[in-house]
Nucleic acid binder design. Sequence first.
RNA 1: GCCGAGGUAGCUCAGUGGUAGAGCGCGGCCCUGAAAAGGCCGGCGUGGGGGGUCCGAUUCCCUCCCUCGGCA
Length: 306
Amino acid sequence: MPKEKVIFIVGPTATGKSEAAFCLARKIKGEIISCDSMQVYRGMPIISNQPPAVLLKKAPHHLLSVISPQKEYNVSQYRQDALKKIKLILKKKKTPVFTGGTGLYMSILVDGIFEIKAQNQALRKKLYQQAQKYGSDFLHDKLKRVDPAASAKIHPHDTRRIVRALEVFKLTGKPISILQQQRKGLADEYDVRIFCLNLARAKLYQRIGQRTEKMFKQGLLKEAAKLLKLKLSKTSSAAIGLKELKGYFDGRCGLAEAKAQIIRNTCLYSKRQLTWFRKDKRIRWINIKENDTPKKIGERLWKKLS
RNA sequence: GCCGAGGUAGCUCAGUGGUAGAGCGCGGCCCUGAAAAGGCCGGCGUGGGGGGUCCGAUUCCCUCCCUCGGCA
């Protein structure tokens, strides 16, 4: 029996993934699952650039607007949510079509993550305090003693990963470098196809600028103001646009400057996304041109599936 | 026209008589429970033009050009 297909359409932001995924899903009786760390949040459709309402109406979309922006969310939780959706969709004899730009989410789905629950906010907080007091190198030395492999891999300044590695070790008594080898993902079970949409760099940046303008026209300011009144979680508050507009609302910079910052930070983000995707050799690249319509891109994807 | 300040990286600017740095940008990379986050690497340059002093000038002197502020 042939393996069931699970499709991923990834790529840097502003390449038209949502539309292309929609067109493909239509052709193959697929249902779309978001692979995006921000679109899971409610109340931020503009800032997180969710697919337009027209598309949402015409095809089933999953994992959009499912979490309160006041709540934390993470890869592991995403993975569990996504796995449930896959089963649900396959049961209906339909094909899951993931689309989004969060490289880690994709990779954790495709390749897996270690299942042991090892997270403790209090411990984490304590470790961060230590990092601040004695420096990240201090914690890095500590890690070196319990998990030399991890410490060799993590840069002494990368506080996040050092803290995480120590947290896991303290909670489980096992080195994270060992646990990380225990992973089983979709690739072991399904016929996973990954496509990455891409544009010439200059065009990509140009589109990001255009899209940012569009977001403002759609009511970004209003949405951001509303969000900023809430006590946002660490995760949701990291959305590009929020910190920049907060500066504007607080009178620390003008609107034009805030907008320029949003565009710049989005371009930087898109570059990091590309780095992530480039290293995954399973990805099939779809180079798109300025005037390619979503329908045309959807067709190209469809042809590459068979 | 006169007086003052200044012309150094894509931008904002620092510095030095022994051919130049920082932040941002730009490019590349890493990534296993915050990932739109976090971290690492790379200087990408006819030092406004010309002349002079000097072993040696981006640095000192002269001159021209340009920009900004003040006075006319």
